[in-house]
């Protein structure tokens, strides 16, 4: 299977995310999130994801990264029971070590129970991969999660426990993606403490660390001329967090960022505040990819340079992209994740 939604990246932006939103709902500003319902799928929007990245560490200090993602992609703005459901689901799971990058993908139709998301009690799954909420009904459904994924060469089970609140991005969750006004609904849970284990070809490893969950849905988050993005989620050693991205186009691009205080209060930064500049590229899967970046927010005196754990964190899936754990140093240190699409 080539790709669920076509890969005419040049004409319709990355993974078709730039295609028009015929019949689908379009994000509107000023509509507050309603939980737990918003943890579940929004089938009247074209795309949606549940995106978890974790920076992990073994007792001996070895660094790992883990990813668990469930994408929803709708062929029509509705849901139906059975095979006639227009909802398609795609799962990506990965484990990154300094020397290896394990990737797996699952694709499924909606409507029959093979894949889906239920808001309460929270559960997101595709085949035997699952992100399951353990919190009691009525409480924050994303506060306690058990995340599993398994493939031929790796599997993992992670126990996530939120130490802070959910954080909306942009204007109370209305996250603008281009100067033309493309936008998505976007919130995160960046405060997970993680324990768990990874099963790799070399053996099992007990790990601990930090994780970040992104929830985003939209119908046309990219403008037509945007070809991809560079997205950072950073856990600062100070306990603060930074989410920042740049959407690339023919010109300067469009950057946006959210500064999150250690208490979990979001401070959306105006477009253009974030400045990122590649400092090193690497040959990955036959292309040149900037794997190390200088990330600056001059107004806050934030100036760091990121380094990947593994240059080759290439997600060789039906829609390939780069996604891997990074560490950074400069006027503050920390770890995080970098996602780069459209290269």
């Amino acid at each position: 299977m080539a790709s669920l939604s076509g890969s005419q990246a040049a004409s319709e932006g990355f993974a078709g995310l730039g295609s028009a939103a015929e019949g689908f709902s379009v994000p509107q500003p000023g509509l507050p999130f309603r939980f737990p319902a918003d943890h579940g799928p929004h089938t009247d929007f074209r795309i949606e994801w549940w995106y978890l990245t974790a920076n992990l560490e073994a007792p001996d200090g070895t660094q790992y990264g883990a990813q668990w993602t469930l994408f929803r992609s709708a062929l029509a703005p509705r849901e139906a029971n059975g095979w006639s459901s227009p909802q398609l689901w795609m799962g990506h799971a990965a484990v990154t070590t300094s020397g290896d990058h394990f990737v797996a993908e699952r694709i499924s139709r909606g409507g029959v129970g093979q894949a889906g998301v239920v808001a309460e009690p929270f559960s997101a799954w595709i085949d035997d991969w699952q992100m399951k909420g353990l919190a009691a009904p009525g409480s924050d459904q994303l506060a306690e999660l058990n995340v599993t994924a398994a493939a031929k060469d790796f599997s993992y089970e992670l126990r996530l426990s939120a130490t802070g609140p959910l954080v909306p991005h942009g204007d109370n969750g209305y996250s603008v993606k281009s100067a033309k006004g493309q936008a998505s609904y976007y919130y995160s849970q960046p405060f997970y403490a993680v324990t768990g284990s990874l099963a790799l070809p070399t053996g099992n490893v007990a790990v601990t660390g930090k994780a970040w969950l992104d929830r985003e849905w939209s119908s046309q988050p990219l403008a037509e001329d945007q070809t991809g993005w560079d997205w950072f989620s950073l856990h600062l050693d100070t306990g603060e967090k930074l989410m920042g991205f740049r959407l690339r186009d023919a010109g300067e691009g469009f950057t946006s960022a959210t500064w999150i205080t250690a208490e979990g209060r979001p401070e959306p930064l105006p477009a253009g505040t974030l400045q990122i500049v590649p400092v090193r590229t690497a040959k990955v899967a036959g292309r040149r990819i900037p794997v190390a970046w200088n990330v600056r927010i001059p107004s806050r005196g934030f100036d760091v340079t990121t380094r990947p754990l593994n240059d080759q964190a290439w997600m060789a899936t039906s829609t390939p992209y780069w996604e891997g754990p990074i560490s950074f140093g400069g006027n503050v240190g920390g770890r995080g994740y970098l996602e780069m699409t459209g290269y």
């Binding site: 299977m1 080539a2 790709s3 939604s5 062929l75 694709i107 499924s108």
Partner: peptide
């Protein structure tokens, strides 16, 4: 989507054809 590749002997076409096959 789940049919094993070794069993998928009839070409269902490109992604667009595939979508119209399942929709």
């Amino acid at each position: 989507l789940t049919m094993p590749a070794e069993a998928q002997t009839v070409d269902l076409g490109n992604a667009g054809d595939l979508l119209s096959f399942i929709s």
